[in-house]
Design a protein around this nucleic acid. Structure first.
Lengths: 120, 120
DNA sequence: CCTTCAATTAACCACTTGGTTAATCGATAG
DNA sequence: CTATCGATTAACCAAGTGGTTAATTGAAGG
């Protein structure tokens, strides 16, 4: 893994194939062949998707004879969830609309930017 | 935007600079210069990060004279949050440990994989 | 006017990513 | 022993990403 854990998690989730793999894994462990079957891409492509997921800590692989059993390690999703959670108040109850309104009408805000004076 | 909204959101979040920009924006709107100041990268680099965020619908830009005021559009984070939310039960109460245990001891699971018989 | 300033676009570079096919590895079956 | 099967690795390719510097646009100010 070359980047921070949060970036690795989000990057792993930024691909629909990998999200579908996780969704499949959420309903139970599966072999690589099982995971590959819904997709029309080659086995090596699946194998690398799994490596990305494993590097991000989102799955674990276990060898069983000549099969690799994959299972979800969902706790690795927790960091991403927690990060998003801190923004929850911004989208709930249309609060961001309210904030925007206050910013605009109250004028002098509590923070830096040039107080958006329109041309005088 | 070339990909599905969820992929675009996760991809936008998969970069620490962009997450820091969003964090800064969460405490109030800011100009591009304001957003750029904490970082040691060039202005064009910031500009492109902002374009990624805007394409993902995470920010909006508004022209004010020669400044561009950026503000957060946090509701675009909701899709990502909801997606993760469906996995919450998998990491809470160490449930995934439990699932793993049940899978392993109950043996014949309700789903496909080769029922992991060890070499007989 | 001309300059200066905020920001973006253009052109370029190194590196990563997602896909392919071909080759390899380990375990099982005959 | 050999063939086969599941899965991975190797080598390659096209496209995307994150960074740079240089050039460009648009609005303010002397």
């Amino acid at each position: 893994m070359d980047q921070d854990p949060l970036s690795a998690t989000f990057a792993a989730l930024a691909d629909p194939t990998r999200r579908a793999i996780l969704a499949r894994l959420a309903e139970g462990e599966a072999t690589v062949g099982d995971l590959a079957s819904p997709f029309s891409i080659s086995a090596p492509a699946i194998s690398r998707h799994l490596r990305v997921l494993a590097d991000a800590g989102l799955i674990e692989r276990e060898v069983d004879a000549r099969w690799r059993i994959c299972h979800l390690r969902a706790d690795a999703l927790r960091g991403a969830h927690d990060w998003l959670e801190t923004y929850r108040r911004h989208w709930e109850d249309n609060l961001d609309r309210l904030v925007e309104f206050v910013e605009r009408t109250h004028g002098a805000a509590t923070h830096a930017p040039p107080a958006r004076r329109k041309k005088p």
